[in-house]
């Protein structure tokens, strides 16, 4: 089990990759973000984006999924998030892009009242051209390592 104590400032965690398909872009956008440049390939071609792009909220979901999978691989005792400092959608994400996730640990501090600790982290998705497409700075809670039995 990876507890709060096991995260170090400056640590970089590889989150794995996901290749996004046109069907995924359309399904998310039709349900949650039905703007023409997310839902209609023809209208998207004529838009300022020059083609279909994924909803920014979809890319955040993908980053979350890669983080959850990485926590599971590391058996990390993740315990939710109170919120985020910032999120920036820096480049369009297009069908066929391969997005690789990466986390950098920026800061750690313990809770005063609960057996958890906080981690401020910068999470990024990077495309196959080495461009950061979305960057999220936020806080994640992890459980503290239980005191060793006497």
């Amino acid at each position: 089990m990876k507890y709060w104590e096991d995260f170090a400032v400056g640590e970089i965690i590889a989150l794995g990759s996901h290749t996004i398909t046109e069907a995924e872009v359309l399904a998310f956008a039709r349900k949650f973000d039905p703007q023409p440049f997310h839902t209609d390939p023809e209208a998207a071609r004529r838009s300022i984006f020059g083609g279909l792009i994924a909803s920014g909220w979809h890319t955040c979901g993908l980053l979350m999924r890669l983080s959850v999978d990485a926590n599971r691989r590391e058996a990390a005792a993740a315990s939710g998030s109170p919120g985020l400092d910032s999120c920036r959608w820096l480049k369009p994400v297009r069908p066929g892009d391969t997005l690789t996730g990466r986390t950098e640990v920026l800061e750690t501090w313990p809770s005063r009242s609960k057996p958890i600790g906080f981690i401020r982290r910068r999470n990024e998705l990077i495309n196959q051209h080495d461009e950061v497409v979305v960057a999220v700075v936020g806080i994640t809670m992890y459980r503290r390592r239980p005191a060793a039995a006497a």
Partner: peptide, 18 residues
């Protein structure tokens, strides 16, 4: 909002709280 505001996407957001 989008049908009545002349917006063209967003750069992102700050200070999100759950």
């Amino acid at each position: 909002m989008t049908p009545v505001h002349a917006t063209t996407g967003a750069m992102g957001f700050d200070d999100l709280k759950w």
